[in-house]
């Protein structure tokens, strides 16, 4: 948790420093943000009413108002993260495209990973069964016999094929 906060603070400071270093940026206070600036932020947000439709693609009046808020905040010089935080404070985590990585929400990221790893462990198990099975054949003293054993099914198949050929001709 401490780590998380630390990283967050570090990120925030670096963004602030960067923002201060670039005086002529499009986001600077005073300049009017374009539709593309607004959409770039809106894309990452979801309004609570139109579930699963990103804010930039939603045509409802409510979403239009939200985009208006984003535009206003941008022209006041807010950063993308500040705007996102503002909406989270107002409406909860659901406005974000993904659950924030904290607390209970970690489950959403961990569970599929665990199951997926589990699947591969099973798969490796299947491969290991083969590895265990193989030495049985190779450890036979008589290598020729082993070769014979390996050959055996082929002989069998060729005989079956022969029989089948006879039949279809007859």
């Amino acid at each position: 948790m401490i780590n998380y906060t630390k990283r967050y603070l570090l990120l925030l400071t670096s963004i602030l420093i960067l923002a201060a270093l670039i005086p002529g940026s499009a986001m600077a206070q005073g300049s009017y943000p374009t539709d593309d600036d607004v959409n770039a932020v809106a894309k990452q947000l979801y309004c609570p009413v139109c579930e699963n439709i990103p804010l930039d693609a939603c045509g409802t009046t409510a979403c239009e108002q939200w985009r208006g808020i984003i535009r206003d905040r941008l022209s006041e010089g807010w950063t993308e993260d500040q705007i996102k935080t503002y909406f989270v404070d107002q409406y909860g985590d659901r406005v974000l495209a993904e659950p924030p990585r904290s607390g209970f929400n970690w489950l959403v990221y961990i569970v599929p990973l665990l199951i997926f790893v589990g699947g591969f462990v099973l798969l490796i198990g299947a491969f290991q069964r083969w590895r265990k099975a193989e030495p049985e054949v190779s450890s036979r003293k008589n290598a020729k016999q082993a070769a014979k054993l390996k050959k055996a099914p082929d002989e069998y198949i060729s005989r079956v094929e022969e029989e089948l050929n006879k039949r279809s001709k007859g």
């Binding site: 979801y46 909860g92 985590d93 974000l96 495209a97 993904e98 659950p99 929400n105 489950l107 959403v108």
Partner: peptide, 16 residues
């Protein structure tokens, strides 16, 4: 599940 357990709704969107 999140709504049931924590009472808070979250969105699991395309990036996930």
């Amino acid at each position: 599940i999140s709504e049931l357990v924590t009472g808070q709704k979250v969105t699991v969107g395309p990036p996930f």
